[in-house]
């Protein structure tokens, strides 16, 4: 496995059009995608992730149906990008190699294969297919707070041995405090740092995304995710425009124009935001209780439908240890809480 070459000190992968899909209830339009890609491309972003929030094949009752077919959006993104390249997410168990091939045909050149942090051995099939297609590969170890650094490193090893060029500490719940994030970065770098890049994907639920990104860089992590206006699940991702400004202040060359990213956030993304991800009670509870960030809108909907507080649903999901993909359990929990309320 050759380690991907870095063009700059660090690469920022923008996931506005993928993680942001959660906050947009998977209703991105082709125009929004084209406008966002043009702005990110002009600002020097190298990789832009586009797909349903739950990855290719995610359009469903369980996660929400895509407003526009994600393959149409990927193809549109590919058309608009002059220097940037397009990445997609794939969650084994939801998406398949067939979905990956369609995304590749539509113009995707990188796949990010995502598993729960202890289940990396469901990913080799998809890494093998991606390498055969000649795609760059990233591995997402989701809910990275749910296992210890040594085990997370073992899981990263499984992915790298299967063809992953860059395993990620993926803080899906926005739960990792700075020392916890750092210990995981160090463990992964120790285990696979000679053969692969290591990445970090943050959420803002406890406001740690940018701070953890700085620690990541200082520790040796060289692939870092962001979203314009933080557009992403829960209270959103580390904002790309903030990462750019902070790295600029630190004298770290991320190869991007911070001013143009601020313009992109303010002039392109903000006008179409249906909700600006924020650290409200529900989102903070997600970071606090370690709940998958994508559960947020589903919990709000179930809360409304069954007349129970969304933050109670989320807290219960944390207690029960539900993982990414188990959005159906949110309804189950809401029904249970409603029954408990009626009995009381």
């Amino acid at each position: 496995m050759t380690k991907p070459a870095l063009r700059n000190d660090v690469r920022i992968i923008d996931t506005t059009l993928r993680d942001g899909s959660h906050a947009m209830a998977h209703r991105f339009t082709e125009t929004q995608v084209r406008d966002t890609v043009r702005a990110l491309d002009a600002a020097g972003i190298e990789w832009i992730e586009v797909s349903h929030g739950d990855g290719v094949g995610g359009s469903s009752f369980n996660y929400g149906f895509s407003g526009t077919d994600e393959m149409t959006l990927i193809a549109a993104a590919r058309e608009e990008a002059r220097t940037a390249k397009i990445a997609v997410l794939l969650v084994p168990g939801i998406g398949t190699v067939d979905d990956l091939k369609r995304a590749h045909d539509a113009g995707a050149e990188m796949v990010r294969v995502a598993t729960h942090c202890t289940e990396a051995d469901v990913s080799p099939q998809h890494f093998a297919a991606a390498r055969e297609l000649g795609m760059e590969t990233v591995g997402f170890l989701m809910m990275a707070h749910r296992t210890d650094p040594a085990d997370l490193a073992k899981q990263a090893r499984i992915m790298v041995d299967a063809g992953c060029e860059c395993p990620y500490v993926t803080d899906s719940a926005g739960a990792l405090l700075m020392h916890e994030a750092k210990a995981r970065f160090e463990a992964l770098l120790d285990e696979v740092g000679d053969e692969a890049l290591v990445g970090y994907h943050g959420h803002q639920n406890l406001s740690m995304g940018v701070a953890n990104s700085v620690i990541a860089y200082e520790t040796g992590v060289r692939s870092i995710d962001g979203s314009l206006c933080a557009l992403g699940a829960g209270s959103g991702n580390s904002p790309t425009e903030v990462l750019a400004a902070v790295f600029d202040r630190l004298g770290i060359d991320a190869g991007v124009d911070a001013g143009l990213l601020l313009d992109a956030a303010e002039d392109v993304v903000r006008p179409y935001l249906q909700r600006w991800p924020k650290m409200d009670r529900n989102a903070v509870v997600q970071g606090w209780a370690g709940v998958y960030s994508s559960f947020l809108l589903h919990a709000e909907r179930a809360g409304e439908r069954y007349k129970v507080p969304a933050h109670d649903i989320l807290r219960r999901c944390g207690e029960l240890g539900y993982v990414g993909g188990q959005e159906d359990m949110i309804i189950d929990v809401a029904i249970t809480l409603a029954a408990e309320r009626d009995e009381a």
């Binding site: 939801i94 539900y322 188990q326």
Partner: peptide, 23 residues
């Protein structure tokens, strides 16, 4: 038809759960 599978490592182990959505 569409099928989704999720593995959960929680301890003690969770009992199998299934959800069926029909349009």
């Amino acid at each position: 038809g569409k099928a989704i599978i999720v593995l959960n490592p929680v301890e003690p182990p969770m009992i199998m759960r299934d959800t069926v959505y029909a349009m």
